[in-house]
């Protein structure tokens, strides 16, 4: 089915609006097998919506999403659920199940596939050790710190050895040291398993560290696609403004931006 020339994920001309508000407009992006692609952009530019469209959590108004050549938008609900076996997802807030222990969270996909509880627990313990959290299997999510939750979320995303891992703001809300730990884990995962990764973030350090390719989403459109090396050299005004974190610039054309600018003046 797939070969090196066929993108693992091919997003073609996706548009999505909520009521009158256009979130995504004609967005296209190809992600090759075994590569790590990060979509960057300001909050509210539709990064999460894009990833949710790929996962089938939201239905785009138009466009196509191919995974290994199969159009996922044409799948039935059951078929889509079946394809989710190949996918792992780290949510921004980790989204751990409150009623389950840490190991049950991590091994959830394995347990759902009928794996023996003892074997599943052993595998969960192995992955937890890999993310640097040995011995916390019996804890409940409420007993974990933000950084620990994120790492447990990552462990859950990869425990069933998916082909594709989606990362929604993997370092948001974490201290710099914990962000670095998470970034290193992602790089390690990418290098050791060759997993295809699609991440979204507005953390430039994270984007530079974990990506092979970077796409910038701006005003609902895929504005620019670059490699991490070009982050510092590319002279596109919007990209420069975003990377340098300046309030002034072309991205400020939104009403919100103008209001802030006027308030500062």
């Amino acid at each position: 089915m797939s070969n090196d020339q066929t993108p693992r994920i091919s997003i073609r001309n996706i548009s999505k609006r909520f009521g009158e508000k256009v979130i995504l407009e004609d967005v296209s992006l190809d992600i090759m097998p075994g590569t790590s692609t990060t979509v960057i952009g300001m909050s509210g530019t539709g990064k999460s919506v894009l990833i949710k469209c790929v996962l089938g959590l939201l239905k785009p108004d138009s466009g196509e999403i191919f995974v290994d050549g199969e159009n996922w938008l044409e799948l039935s609900e059951d078929e889509h659920l079946d394809r989710m076996r190949r996918v792992g997802m780290l949510f921004q807030g980790a989204a751990l199940f409150d009623s389950l222990s840490v190991w049950e969270n991590v091994a959830f996909a394995l347990l759902e596939r009928g794996e023996e509880r003892t074997t599943a627990r052993e595998k969960a313990a192995e992955v937890l050790e890999w993310v640097g959290l040995p011995g916390i299997e019996a804890l409940m999510p409420a007993e974990l710190s933000g950084g620990m939750s994120k790492r447990v979320g990552l462990a859950r995303a990869i425990c069933h050895k998916p082909d594709i891992v989606f990362l929604d703001e993997p370092t948001t809300g974490l201290d710099p040291i914990m962000s670095d730990v998470i970034n290193r884990l992602i790089v390690n995962l990418h290098k050791t398993s060759g997993t295809t990764i699609m991440a979204i973030t507005h953390d430039m350090k994270s984007a530079a560290m974990i990506s092979d390719n970077i796409g910038m989403l701006c005003h609902g459109q895929m504005h620019r696609q670059i490699t991490p090396d070009q982050l510092d050299s590319d002279q596109d005004p919007m990209l420069r403004q975003f990377v340098e974190g300046r309030a002034e610039g072309p991205i400020n054309c939104s009403v919100w931006g103008k209001q802030i600018e006027e308030a500062v003046k």
Partner: peptide, 18 residues
């Protein structure tokens, strides 16, 4: 409702669970 707003329901879907 809490599961919905904390994305736990979305997480179930991504773990191939209806």
């Amino acid at each position: 409702g809490t599961m919905r707003v904390s994305e736990q329901i979305d997480a179930l879907w991504t773990l191939s669970t209806d």
